[in-house]
Nucleic acid binder design. Structure first.
Lengths: 183, 183
DNA sequence: ACGAGCATGTAAGAGGTTACATGATTAT
DNA sequence: ATAATCATGTAACCTCTTACATGCTCGT
């Protein structure tokens, strides 16, 4: 056996909700799903074809104009069954964060090293932007209060992402403040 | 260009601090470094050989007994230089968490679905064990207070990991409590 | 007319996992 | 003696990214 093809389940999850084109999926990966999972289009398109061959999804071509044809994919019953099976399976062990900021920090053993300040500034900047984006999405998607029960999973991952980024940023700022005080 | 070989820098970071065998590195990946980065031994051993050919690290064989020979690797000056260069480079963009619990949650749109409870229990159990382990390590490595300044990076990643797991667990428990109240 | 975004692909190759292998040493 | 752990490797295979490619459509 080899590493589990999670992408397949992610695609299935999206396509069992609604019919999407490869390009739509790409857009999803740029939005909050991208906070959890993302793949390049060069991986997505071939995977969609494989999944159609295995009858997990079904395609439907829509002619937008003479020269423009879109291919929409939608999960089949077989696909829905496989997705459900995955949702019931025990979740995987915790994976390494693979955060290269933290890795770099680990290798700077001298607390006085100026590189720590540079890295802190960069990391803060990146995560501030991320938090800003998540907050914006939360406001946009669930601003009306009404939807919360409609799309429970979507709400949860946004809430979780915002919490995670908020706490992490607080920690980063605290570390930054400690350093300024000492110098 | 292709996907960056971060493993190389991780190995370099470890081997510029002290001489280690492939097996020692494996052990490190099972400890708190594994919280950030991990690779299987079948990837580590060949990588070490490649790095030695490129003179980033140097090997030294130690005969433990007649039949037992260990190979220790240590970063060279060239290796140290490359590591330093990496530490100065801007950090990468934020990567998706690839947490399959959250992904599954996202695809369960019905808040009443019992699978949410099962997933919550599993995720809580996994992260409780992780937090327990990190706390144990913190006590073991920095219990005497003295070391904190010695190994700043090491302290930071432990602190960060503990904070992250603590807050995440609080969130998970809160979600669990909300569900019980409603049913 | 032209640039931004829509839309879909292939190819090369690096990164990473699982399985297969082998043998030594130490503790029970 | 035998199981666990130390110690090091190779082979097969999958996952994933980067780069290369092409053409359409819409707004300005």
């Amino acid at each position: 056996m080899s590493k589990k093809n999670i992408l397949r389940y992610v695609l299935l999850g999206l396509l069992c909700k609604e019919a999407l084109t490869g390009y739509d999926i790409r857009k999803h990966f740029e939005q909050e799903i991208g906070d959890i999972w993302s793949s390049s289009h060069s991986q997505v398109y071939p995977e969609l074809k494989k999944m159609e061959q295995e009858e997990l999804i079904q395609s439907k071509t829509v002619t937008e104009s003479e020269k423009m044809v879109k291919t929409y994919y939608k999960g089949t019953e077989k696909g829905q069954a496989l997705l459900n099976q995955w949702l019931y399976e025990p979740i995987e062990a915790i994976q390494p964060t693979r955060n290269d900021f933290t890795m770099k920090l680990f290798f700077i053993s001298d607390p006085e090293d100026v590189r720590v300040d540079i890295l802190l500034r960069e990391e803060i900047s990146l995560h501030q932007e991320k938090l800003r984006y998540l907050n914006e999405r939360m406001k946009k998607v669930f601003g009306e209060e009404a939807q919360k029960k409609q799309d429970y999973g979507h709400y949860l991952i946004l809430e979780q992402g915002i919490m995670r980024e908020t706490v992490y940023l607080e920690w980063l700022h605290r570390k930054q403040a400690e350093r300024i005080k000492q110098s």
